[in-house]
């Protein structure tokens, strides 16, 4: 088990290095940040001096080595746009994104799982057909459109929810949270719903398919033959066995939730990392882009690791195979 974790960590390190390398080489195509940093009246000499000072004229390998060297020490440089350390900037944005993703993930699970079970059990029912049709809409409408539609209905027409921002946040140490104020909760509803819709329908459809698969197997028939209650069969036996793929997908989807958050955050002006990243691209703010991509890669790697570990907890077969290790 321990060796397994170490091995995975080493693999992750290689993944991170590869991500850093690829993202860094892409930065050659985003344009020169200097023109965004200086005003129109700046002379060619002023521009050149700034370029030299930022190290933009150095060859690619040197720039990359410098970036890795600093990043290993936790120093991602200073944002070109905001003139403050990238690690500070990201630390102020991380809570917004994580809280949004957390609420979205909980919503997706809490709504998606029961709906999946329901449609799996009553697959020919009218309710199931309606739900499946609706889920098709959820899966095919772009996030952007859903967000704008929600704003139009709940902010402009009904005036119930705010159309942008985080509302009032409460500061607990360096973490700013939405969860302690009414305005904060009101602000998070629409972005979280927008963000979770795709995941929700995905989980629902996945659970449905798995349930239908499992219900056909022999041990379910056997369980019924034993005279177990429907409830015990459906939830004690069937649902439990559908969990492995659901956990994998949900876990991996948390990574994509963070990635998808870019669009949701832009629509709702949610001050998280996604919005920060998009603004960094427009400004060619290389230090922020590099740090963001590395962080997202890191999150994906950690989530994958956690999903692997969760398998152990859920599926006893894996434990049996590995505990006999050493052969």
């Amino acid at each position: 088990m321990f060796a397994f974790i170490i091995r995975r960590l080493l693999q992750s390190l290689i993944v991170m290095l590869a991500v850093a390398f690829i993202s860094f080489s892409l930065f050659n195509f985003v344009g020169d940040p200097v023109n965004n940093m200086v005003g129109q009246e700046a002379t060619a000499e002023q521009r050149e001096a700034l370029r030299v000072q930022l190290g933009l004229n150095d060859p690619f390998p040197i720039q990359f080595a410098r970036f890795i060297g600093n990043a290993v020490q936790g120093d991602f440089g200073v944002s070109y746009r905001l003139s403050r350390p990238v690690s500070d900037v990201i630390a102020t944005r991380l809570p917004a994104t994580l809280e949004l993703v957390f609420v979205a993930a909980v919503l997706a699970l809490v709504i998606g799982l029961p709906l999946g079970v329901y449609t799996g059990l009553h697959r020919h029912g009218f309710g199931s057909k309606v739900l499946l049709t609706l889920s098709l809409i959820g899966i095919s409408l772009p996030t952007f459109l859903i967000g704008i539609m929600l704003i139009l209905i709940f902010a402009v027409w009904l005036g119930w929810l705010p159309s942008f921002g985080r509302g009032d946040t409460v500061q607990i140490g360096w973490w700013s949270t939405n969860f302690l104020t009414v305005a904060g909760w009101k602000s998070i509803i629409m972005p979280a719903v927008t963000l979770c819709l795709f995941q929700l329908t995905l989980i629902m459809r996945l659970v449905r398919a798995e349930m239908m698969e499992v219900l056909r197997t022999d041990y379910i028939k056997f369980a019924r033959a034993r005279g177990l209650s429907n409830r015990a069969v459906h939830f004690g036996h069937a649902l439990k066995n559908t969990m492995v793929p659901v956990i994998t997908i949900t876990g991996l989807q948390i990574g994509s939730l963070i990635a998808f958050a870019i669009i949701t955050e832009t629509v709702f002006q949610w001050p998280g990392m996604g919005l920060l990243f998009l603004q960094a691209i427009q400004f060619a703010d290389i230090p922020v882009m590099a740090a963001y991509l590395c962080l997202v890669a890191f999150i994906f790697v950690v989530i994958n690791l956690m999903v692997d570990l969760l398998y152990y907890a859920v599926d006893p077969r894996l434990r049996v195979e590995r505990s006999g290790g050493g052969h």
């Binding site: 139009l152 902010a155 005036g159």
Partner: peptide, 18 residues
Amino acid sequence: FTPISNDATRVAALLSGE
């Protein structure tokens, strides 16, 4: 002062009185 980068959201925020 609040930056709102998305055009549609900015219009919505004005129309909703925020």
